[in-house]
Design a protein around this nucleic acid. Sequence first.
DNA 1: ATTTCATTATATCGGTTCGATATAGCGTTG
DNA 2: CAACGCTATATCGAACCGATATAATGAAAT
Lengths: 212, 212
Amino acid sequence: MLDMAILGLLEEKDLHGYEIRRQLRDNLGILANVSFGSIYPALSRLEKTGAVVATEDQATPATDASAPAPPTGSLSGELAVLRARRHTPTRSRRGKKVYRITEKGRLVFTELLAESGSVDDARSFGLKVAFARHLAPQARLTLLERRRAILVQRLAEAGAHNPDLDVYARSVVQHTADSVTQDITWLDRLIATERATFHPAAAELTYEGDIR
Amino acid sequence: MLDMAILGLLEEKDLHGYEIRRQLRDNLGILANVSFGSIYPALSRLEKTGAVVATEDQATPATDASAPAPPTGSLSGELAVLRARRHTPTRSRRGKKVYRITEKGRLVFTELLAESGSVDDARSFGLKVAFARHLAPQARLTLLERRRAILVQRLAEAGAHNPDLDVYARSVVQHTADSVTQDITWLDRLIATERATFHPAAAELTYEGDIR
DNA sequence: ATTTCATTATATCGGTTCGATATAGCGTTG
DNA sequence: CAACGCTATATCGAACCGATATAATGAAAT
């Protein structure tokens, strides 16, 4: 799921891991404050499958420290340099690895965005919606309806609130149900808007029709 | 986190894995439909640390099939029995492993419930609230306030919604923020009730006072 | 009667995410 | 110039999920 979001960001411009996290955090705020422990493995995955390529940070103007053995005079200094080298063979001086999306990556992104899965989780669904502008109107509508169906079903199954629950359990269950209800309302608004823009004229005719 | 919930259920009565899942699903419904891939490892964990003990299913009244070599006359029948025995050396006939909470388990439960962590995640927090009746009034209040503080901070950090977001991203972010706001409102109600029951008389005096 | 099916029941596997931790370069500020 | 905070990458263990395998049981269908 993170993969999709990362590819979505890289579609706009090349970024490195730290920036990706910032973008997610700053732009999508509450929805996606993702850990580095997720970001970097995700980038490795994507690189391994060829969806992205890691390029060196070309912006290394001042203080060229790539000399083989800078005679610092300090032994510990030299050792530190070597240790750093050993640990970061492919990285540039600043240690920035800028990632660029490939053609395959663009394909993968489209697939991930359009695939039927990843709708059960609120987080994953939210991320999909956040990048829904890359979807065809039809696929967008389908996505929203699929999520709606899941929430409705979940609400129905939870159903009749158990009477032998104490105040706290009942309260939290009720509140969760209310949240889901609000989610559905939100989806209904989105779906309505979506339908209106899709066929603005025949809106009243095709209304409530043959959904599969 | 699951550990706490499981111990909470076992505090009421002995249960086996399948039942634990059902209880969570049926009672807490939407909030906690937990996978078996979480339940069974959790039970193993708890057993390993001695928080629970696995007992045999003693309820095997009718059709006593524990005879060493029931003369079924059918060879395949005998073989089936033996194969079942081989695969389930510690399990009873039905394969049920009923878990009972230990004294240490009760202690662990109290600790898990009272610990300051596991409040960032909506799920974990929900589960804690669901078992909040086992908490002291003070600890209960603290739990609710801690969660509230986190949500408020999260909302503040998300802050000024980015203007250069498209309709979809903006919509999902806004909706998420609304949900969090509703969560806070809910918490406020709970906190108010909690305070009222804690010191019913001085409610108006200590009102809006020295929260840490 | 027996096959078939749904339910009950336990268990493991691979993959994803998180939180914590380690490391280090860099810029600002005291 | 030392201390601090931000930028930046990376890895680790633990938790959880979804899928899958296995098997016993009971009821319904044939």
